Amino acid sequence: MEKNLHIVTGNKGFVGINLSKYFKEKNKKIIGVSRKPDLNEVDYNQLDKKMLDGAKSFIHLAGKAHDLKKTSEDSEYFKVNTELTKTLFNQFLESECEVFIYVSSVKAVADEVDGFLTEETTPNPITVYGKSKLAAENYILSKKIPKNKRVYILRPCMVHGPFNKGNLNLLYTFVSKGVPYPFGKFENKRSFVSVDNLCFIVDELIENNKISSGVYNIADDESLSTNQLVLIIGEVVNKKAKILNLPKTFVKLIAKLGDVLPLPIDSEKVQKLTENYEVSNLKIKTAMQKNLPLSAEKGLKKTIASF
């Protein structure tokens, strides 16, 4: 009989909540794994072989996110992102569970991208977050995968969806309050991935046993500039978006002031909003032989409408 049980760590996080909802709509049963389990969840320490044997897939979403305030200890990233992943992957290998999906990040490869990021790009993470994710990837890739199992490492770019936080909220605040977006001079291209497309891919990997184990970048089909994004937000909130073309040198000067004074922008925010970061999804699209359900623009409109 086909197994219909799926184990999900980090099920209370933004992606986890959306994936759980997506799976329920597909009549898939879930066991959530959490450090503080609710009624229908289990603690990491309670996860045993019997539970894994009864599951078709094990989706590992849990991790320590990139801390922009830089208050976290480096060891904490390796404890959560690397060591926990090793433990869970070992449990998977010893069980009868078929599919293991580790949700890593493009940040395990590069913090800045020249051209397109592909799976062939040699990883060189700068942050401890990226290094801890890459260490987990390397551990998974170092193990021999039994014939009856499939193992996928997913590297999503910036994931967005209804009610998530991040730089989209900052842009939304700019536009909805009628504040002009001041970085119009910066021409950039960025990849995003809607949580709907990510859930679709995860489901496809579980169901399609013809997709080979391996590392896959996850992104929407189209890249967008931040200026385009500002215009899309204006369209959704029904306000004419204002874009200012301030000189780049002036913007960078204000950002430097924001590094030491409590201003709404600082160097990191300007970098995030204006950098190029394009990610190729060609490998996963070729493997699935299917189109993604949402275009980049449609996915972003859905997210923005939820704010």
Rank of each mutant, 00 (worst) to 15 (best):
V179T: 15
V128H: 14
K189W: 12
L170K: 12
N167V: 05
N188Y: 11
K133T: 01
R155V: 09
P182V: 05
F186Q: 04
K149Y: 04
P162E: 15
E204G: 01
P182K: 08
N169Q: 15
L171T: 02
L154P: 03
V202E: 10
N188H: 10
N138I: 03
N197A: 12
Y172S: 05
N169H: 13
K147S: 14
N148H: 14
S191D: 11
P156V: 08
F192C: 09
P182H: 06
N138S: 11
L134C: 05
L168W: 05
V195F: 03
L171Q: 05
V151G: 07
G130D: 13
E137W: 05
N167K: 06
G166M: 04
S191M: 02
N208F: 01
P162R: 10
E207Q: 15
R155E: 10
V179N: 08
Y129K: 06
F174S: 03
D203K: 14
N188A: 11
V151R: 02
F186C: 13
E204I: 07
I206K: 01
P146S: 01
K143L: 14
I206W: 00
V159T: 13
P162Q: 12
S142A: 09
I201A: 04
P146Y: 01
V195Q: 01
L171K: 05
A135D: 14
T173H: 14
L171Y: 08
K165D: 14
P146W: 00
V159Q: 02
V175Y: 02
L198P: 03
K133Q: 09
V195G: 00
H160S: 12
V128N: 14
N188I: 06
G161M: 07
E137F: 10
K144I: 15
C157F: 13
I206E: 11
F186G: 05
Y181R: 00
F183T: 02
K149S: 04
F192R: 04
V179D: 08
L168M: 12
S142W: 00
I201P: 10
L170C: 09
V179G: 06
V193C: 12
F200Q: 01
E137T: 04
P182Q: 00
L154Y: 01
S132Q: 07
A135F: 09
K131E: 07
S132N: 08
C157H: 11
A135G: 11
I153Y: 00
N208W: 03
E187I: 12
A136L: 00
L205T: 03
S176C: 08
N164Y: 11
F186H: 11
P146L: 02
L171N: 05
L154M: 06
G166R: 10
N188L: 13
K177V: 07
K131W: 02
G166W: 02
C199I: 04
N138V: 01
N197S: 05
E137R: 10
C157S: 14
G178A: 06
S176Y: 09
E187C: 12
N188G: 13
I201K: 08
G184R: 06
I145Q: 08
N164P: 10
